[in-house]
């Protein structure tokens, strides 16, 4: 993989190393060479790890899965930016040609109490799963695939629901938020169901239940900095947070059986 010498790059990396969840972490400095500009950021870390393993040293732990920008596993804060400098781009889709040769790059995990570090750059995002378990689903029997247009959905609603459903649950919104709030994630999940007919049955309790869980998990409160939207690799809009706020009001005012 090491490219031809004319196009090979080298970097100084300052990487967060932390041996265990309760261990104290520090930034450590590494040098990586023979990086092709066409490599992704994760492939650049693979090169580093190959050389660390060759030297008998502990490789840097980082999360990844699909490497094509759809799973939401990769999760690095690069020079203070969640998923790095490119807009609407996950770390696995960020390419080294965006950096200049010889640059120093700082790499940290997504940081929030609700996302504890497991090892180095790997965090535990199961708090998101527990939020989803509180209401990010529908409980109607869907059966086999229905005929197209059996349930009519206005095109603009379908589009907006689809935009919200694009959330891959990576947690960059939390990482980028000065308050470690998870409102963009919850807003997206609540929105995509609230906008569709299938999501109506649990609509009034969904937002309240998910936000209660979100608070319980120790996420912060949204104060509308809008950093989340700019960090989101899927371009989820803060419009979904406003909708979540409306859903909370609607849920709070809804008549309920005592």
């Amino acid at each position: 993989m090491s490219g031809d010498p004319t196009s090979s790059m080298g970097f100084t990396l300052k990487i967060w190393r932390q041996s265990a969840p309760d261990a104290k972490g520090t930034m450590e400095t590494y040098h990586v060479a023979d990086v092709s500009p066409d490599m992704s950021f994760l492939e650049m870390l693979d090169v580093l790890n190959e050389s660390l393993i060759g030297e008998g040293r502990e490789p840097v732990a980082f999360d990844h899965d699909c490497r094509e920008g759809i799973c939401g596993a990769c999760s690095l804060v690069i020079d203070g930016q969640a998923h790095g400098p490119e807009t609407e781009t996950t770390v696995c889709q960020l390419h080294m040609r965006h950096y200049s040769d010889g640059a120093t790059i700082h790499i940290e995990p997504f940081r929030a109490n609700a996302f504890p570090v497991l090892k180095d750059l790997v965090i535990d995002r199961s708090a998101f799963d527990r939020i989803i378990a509180e209401g990010g689903f529908i409980s109607t029997h869907t059966g086999s695939a229905p005929d197209a247009n059996a349930i009519t959905v206005a095109k603009d609603l379908a589009e907006r629901a689809m935009d919200a459903a694009a959330c891959i649950g990576c947690g960059a919104c939390v990482a980028a938020c000065p308050n470690s709030a998870a409102m963009l994630f919850v807003g997206a999940k609540v929105s995509h169901l609230a906008l569709l007919p299938q999501g109506q049955a649990e609509r009034n309790r969904r937002g309240l239940a998910m936000v209660a869980r979100m608070d319980q998990e120790g996420f912060g409160n949204c104060t509308n900095h809008f950093e989340c939207m700019a960090a989101c690799p899927k371009g989820i809009s803060v419009e979904n947070i406003a909708r979540l706020n409306r859903e909370l009001l609607r849920g709070a005012l809804a008549p309920r059986r005592v």
Partner: peptide
């Protein structure tokens, strides 16, 4: 209180 371990490098995505 929601982020006890602060970022070493604090960046922005330009919206603050």
């Amino acid at each position: 209180a929601a982020r006890k371990q602060k970022y070493v490098v604090r960046g922005t995505h330009g919206e603050k």
